[in-house]
């Protein structure tokens, strides 16, 4: 009970409540002044001194990402590599896993179609059901028709595995298949 005994009481009294006349704590004052100075400098930098706008910062960051992407070495797969990978049952199995999570909501768990078309029949809306055609549709999507583009979400490998799955499921005639859409190719 030592320190506060030295404190000066003011002569105020309200319903029995008294008040000390203690000075403002120094560290508190310093914090306050510090934040005010920081605020001022920050404001000067961004609003007067020509600091970058949010838009400029975003553009910068997007360019950096772009450059980064180009640097990332994507192994160029040869045509033959691609074909072997496409036949690899492990690829199709990996594709099945991704398909359940990302595609089945629209194309049905057995690829039989639903919101999107049946992917097992001989009818194709886009291309002729070749590896390139399928990969292209998955990558770019058909945004106007409600097929999302996947290239920003899935890696090259995942897209290939999905393609492998679709190729492996051709002519499986799943139950409840959606009526054909598009051109008959086979």
């Amino acid at each position: 009970m030592s320190s506060q005994d030295n404190d000066q009481l003011t002569d105020h009294e309200y319903d029995g409540i008294r008040e000390y006349d203690n000075p403002l704590p120094n560290w508190w004052l310093m914090t306050f002044f510090g934040t005010v100075i920081f605020a001022f400098i920050y404001w000067l930098h961004y609003e007067v001194g020509g600091g970058p706008s949010l838009k400029a910062e975003l553009n910068q960051a997007m360019l950096a990402l772009q450059a980064h992407k180009q640097q990332a070495v994507v192994k160029e797969l040869s045509e033959a590599d691609l074909e072997t990978m496409l036949k690899d049952p492990q690829m199709a199995a990996a594709g099945a896993l991704a398909f359940t999570g990302k595609c089945a909501a629209c194309h049905g768990p057995e690829l039989q179609g639903g919101i999107g078309p049946n992917l097992t029949d001989a009818f194709w809306l886009h291309g002729k059901g070749t590896r390139e055609d399928i990969m292209h549709t998955i990558q770019k999507g058909v945004p106007d028709k409600g097929m999302p583009p996947w290239e920003s979400m899935l890696s090259q490998n995942e897209i290939l595995s999905l393609t492998a799955l679709i190729v492996s499921k051709q002519d499986t005639n799943p139950a409840g298949a959606k009526p054909p859409q598009g051109e008959k190719v086979r």
């Binding site: 009481l9 409540i17 008294r18 008040e19 006349d21 203690n22 403002l24």
Partner: peptide, 8 residues
């Protein structure tokens, strides 16, 4: 008593 009237 309240700690500091000035701070208030």
């Amino acid at each position: 008593p309240v700690y500091s009237y000035r701070l208030s």
